[in-house]
Design a protein around this nucleic acid. Structure first.
Length: 169
DNA sequence: CAACAGATTCTCT
DNA sequence: GAGAATCTGTTGT
């Protein structure tokens, strides 16, 4: 399979995020189709990178195309794909994926994505392996983000549009 | 150094 | 619909 153009990840996270929908993400022997994403950037009060690099968030300030994995509420891992030029401090949170052979209910939600793929903090900084997707811009829906309490109004969550039957397109 | 809120999910009511 | 589980960075004493 031909890899995704790496230059795609070098742009701002709110431009990269919608283009990651439908993209195939190879990790740990699984091939996951990305179905729901959110963007975070350094000028974004809801982002971990908002106050500059720390021991936890420094990978977001490095080169794009690697994972930023953090632990939330003491129990769950969440995976982001770092985007933008070095020092940009931005990423795209992978909220849901589809994996052949795994029920969608087990891969919906950022914590469950990491559990299903076997991602934890040891994978922080790992390069991501992406392959071109199949979702045209006309099949992308945009909404506000989930679970944030700052910059709530930013329309920075993107999902693949679904049919009335709930099928992804 | 203590308190607290948070990019979540599960379990029980 | 509410509570628990329990890590990290920020803020205040």
């Amino acid at each position: 399979m031909r890899p995704l153009d790496p230059d795609l990840l070098g742009g701002p996270s709110d431009e990269v995020a919608p283009r990651l929908l439908g993209v195939r993400w190879r990790f740990g022997g699984h091939l996951a189709r990305i179905t729901e994403v959110e963007a975070y950037s350094q000028d974004d009060p809801a982002s971990h990178s908002f106050r500059g690099p720390t021991a936890r968030t420094e990978v977001m300030f490095g080169p794009p195309g690697v994972l930023y994995v953090y632990l939330i509420y003491g129990m769950w891992h969440c995976a982001n794909i770092v985007t933008g030029p070095v020092g940009y401090g931005a990423g795209v949170l992978i909220r849901s994926v589809e994996v052949a052979g795994i029920p969608t209910s087990a891969t919906t939600g950022p914590g469950r994505v990491c559990r299903a793929l076997g991602i934890d903090r040891r994978n922080n900084g790992d390069p991501v392996e992406l392959y071109p997707g199949d979702v045209p811009p006309s099949h992308v829906e945009v909404t506000t983000r989930i679970g944030v309490t700052k910059a709530v109004e930013r329309p920075w969550r993107w999902v693949i549009a679904t049919t009335p039957e709930g099928e992804t397109t």
